[in-house]
């Protein structure tokens, strides 16, 4: 445990080295929030209910999606692909007394926590200043179910990130795939708007994938759009997705290890 705490300390120090870059990355998240906030405010000027959302619910959705995006979809796993291609850097982990996945999960967690804290700090000021109305979770159980769904989402995304990075075992051209995956994932996860906005056919296709379990379903639980039974069902399905993604990642990873070639020092 202590060695992972050391990894966490070093990662946190690394984040602080590039403070300006870090602040800018947080500021960028706010810009999307501003766009979506004004867009939905404008839309709800003439409507009370739209896509089964009222104004408060949609604004809460947009804010929560921004916060969760910085927590669930912020990941360090994209760096794995670079390490696999960078002259034997990956090889050096064999000499270290740590598990490779555990190491990256620790790094990932530090990225997520620092990101979460800073995005909340940035958002809280305008939220209080402009007195933006939010929906509160219906009860403590709803909130706990939301937290559980979010935790599973983090794990699903962690293994997804590794899965995409494993292509680095076979090709150096990983960045394009990571870029495309992130775009598909953000839209399908509901990072920009609730999936309810999309036509029914597109919705049903997206709901067959693990992506909505990253943001859309956890937020729906928070907003009370799902009953307790439905929430538990969603959590069970997301757990199944977690095992599926984990198994595929492990399988591809082991295949990749056999194909791995290191050169350089």
């Amino acid at each position: 445990m202590r060695k992972y705490l050391a990894v966490a300390r070093i990662t946190f120090a690394n984040v602080l080295v590039y403070r300006w870059e870090y602040l800018i990355s947080q500021f960028r998240a706010i810009l999307l929030l501003i766009t979506l906030y004004f867009l939905w405010t404008q839309v709800f000027k003439t409507r009370i209910i739209l896509f089964n959302f009222d104004r408060e619910q949609i604004i809460t959705y947009v804010f929560l999606a921004t916060i969760l995006r910085q927590f669930v979809i912020i990941s360090a796993t994209d760096q794995i692909a670079q390490e696999l291609q960078s002259w034997g850097k990956f090889f050096s982990y064999l000499l270290k007394p740590i598990g490779y996945f555990s190491y990256w999960f620790t790094v990932d967690l530090v990225y997520k926590l620092t990101s979460l804290v800073s995005i909340i700090l940035i958002i809280i000021i305008p939220t209080i200043f402009f007195q933006i109305p939010f929906v509160q979770p219906a009860g403590i159980l709803t909130f706990l179910l939301f937290l559980l769904a979010t935790f599973i989402a983090i794990l699903i995304y962690f293994y997804m990130g590794i899965l995409v990075s494993t292509t680095g075992f076979w090709t150096p051209q990983v960045w394009g795939l990571q870029f495309m995956m992130l775009l598909i994932l953000e839209f399908s996860a509901g990072a920009y708007f609730p999936l309810d906005v999309l036509p029914a056919t597109i919705q049903s296709v997206i709901k067959l994938t693990p992506f909505p379990y990253l943001l859309y379903y956890p937020i729906s639980i928070f907003l009370g759009k799902l009953s307790y039974i439905e929430s538990i069902r969603v959590i069970l399905i997301s757990t199944l997705w977690l095992f599926a993604v984990f198994s595929v990642t492990k399988f591809v990873w082991n295949k990749g290890l056999k194909a791995y070639e290191a050169w350089g020092g």
Partner: peptide, 26 residues
Amino acid sequence: SRLHSIFLISGKLIRFSFFFIFIIAL
């Protein structure tokens, strides 16, 4: 980097399509 290019073009077109569908749906 042919593979890389295909993914990049696809990603950009997907982003465009998603926003286009979103505006129409809205």
